[in-house]
């Protein structure tokens, strides 16, 4: 019995970190100030359902379908403001960063005074990426993306511009 309990405890310790991690990316204070908000919340079930409706004939949609089939969730919050200085970029980055555990590694940090600032962290298990957090900040816009599950970053980047969505609309989209 003691051996069984020890084995169970060991499995739990190993299994918990092996699961990809989702983080809290809601910023109610930003939501109140934002002119427009994009809120995409897709858990594993919704991802599977959405994937079923992706076209197999379209190259971009086929690539997305292959990519999302192993994911456990995708969460996006994007806030657009009517004027500059409506949010504290560094403070928000710190809030996101404080939630990331030891397995999260900074992958890319882009700092620009004129263009977009981007921080990307990856949840690394060996050489596998099992989660991604992207924080992108522009003077008028703040975006956080959390992808939960194994993801190929190069393939993700290659998807850019392959969709039928010409411009990401910034509407209030609370589903």
């Amino acid at each position: 019995m003691r051996k069984f309990v020890m084995t169970l405890a060991l499995i739990s310790i190993v299994a918990i970190p092996a699961a990809a991690q989702s983080i809290r990316i809601d910023f109610p204070d930003l939501e109140d100030r934002a002119e427009e908000v994009v809120d995409v919340t897709l858990d594993a079930d919704m991802l599977r359902l959405g994937a079923k409706f992706l076209s197999g004939d379209d190259e971009g949609e086929r690539a997305v379908r292959d990519m999302v089939k192993n994911l456990e969730g995708i969460y996006v919050r994007s806030y657009e403001f009517s004027k500059d200085g409506q949010y504290d970029h560094r403070g928000l980055v710190d809030r996101v960063k404080s939630q990331l555990g030891a397995t999260w590694k900074p992958l890319v940090t882009v700092r620009s005074k004129t263009k977009e600032n981007v921080n990307i962290w990856a949840d690394m298990r060996g050489d596998r990426v099992v989660g991604l957090v992207i924080v992108a900040a522009e003077p008028h816009e703040f975006t956080v993306v959390n992808i939960v599950g194994p993801i190929d970053i190069d393939r993700l980047a290659a998807l850019e511009g392959q969709f039928g969505i010409p411009k990401i609309s910034k509407e209030r989209n609370r589903d």
């Binding site: 919704m46 997305v64 999302v68 981007v118 990307i120 993306v145 993700l156 990401i168």
Partner: peptide, 16 residues
């Protein structure tokens, strides 16, 4: 929603 999320994510990663 899947297309929108992947569109945003791919755009940001490609930019970086």
């Amino acid at each position: 929603q899947v297309l929108r999320a992947m569109s945003i994510a791919s755009e940001k990663v490609a930019y970086a």
